[in-house]
């Protein structure tokens, strides 16, 4: 049976929801894995919401739908509230505790990481928060190697920002929660 990992990324437009999905997908393809990513920005566009549904597998992927996320990168409270119902005991929710706090009614494991403060303090801009969360995800996702993700990051981001993003990734990956 093929191993299948489902990753949900959601937040507002401009938070890097699609970009983080692209980096993950690129990394998976670099490693010879199968991957799909659905992007939704339609029905709820007026609220500015964006969602990427990423599936990574070592075998063919039929349904590209994230039904039971293994990982949920929740970039906003609204995103969390909208999709927390999909999460089960196996789900890991990565979030910024300053954006919202863990919901005791959700059986998932919450991994709080003050990504925006960290990005501001260490890199001088909150814009790197999403890559910090990607780094934290990387530590939990053995299917995709750190080297593949770093290569994916370079392939999907402007060269001028590679160094800062590598540092952001490393901050997230080494963050002790």
């Amino acid at each position: 049976m093929a191993e299948r990992v489902e990753i949900l990324i959601s937040g507002y437009g401009g938070q890097g929801v699609v970009r983080i999905g692209q980096i993950l997908g690129q990394a998976a393809v670099n490693q010879g894995l199968y991957t799909t990513m659905l992007i939704s920005h339609g029905t709820e566009t007026r609220g500015g919401y964006v969602r990427s549904q990423v599936v990574i597998s070592d075998g063919f992927i039929a349904s590209p739908v994230v039904e039971r996320p293994d990982f949920f990168l929740a970039f906003s409270r609204e995103a969390h509230d909208k999709f927390k119902g999909l999460c089960g005991a196996q789900s890991v929710i990565l979030h910024n505790p300053e954006t919202f706090v863990a919901d005791a009614a959700v059986p998932a494991r919450y991994l709080p990481l003050p990504a925006e403060a960290l990005a501001q303090d260490e890199l001088g801009s909150p814009v790197y928060a999403n890559v910090i969360l990607l780094g934290a995800l990387s530590g939990q996702l053995p299917l995709v190697s750190e080297a593949s993700l770093l290569r994916g990051l370079e392939e999907r981001l402007d060269a001028r920002f590679h160094e800062a993003n590598r540092r952001a990734f490393s901050l997230g990956r080494n963050f002790r929660i």
């Binding site: 997908g25 393809v29 991957t35 799909t36 990513m37 659905l38 992007i39 590209p64």
Partner: peptide, 10 residues
């Protein structure tokens, strides 16, 4: 459909 054209895949 939108998922085929906007969707990312191998």
């Amino acid at each position: 459909d939108q998922m085929v054209t906007d969707g990312w895949e191998t």
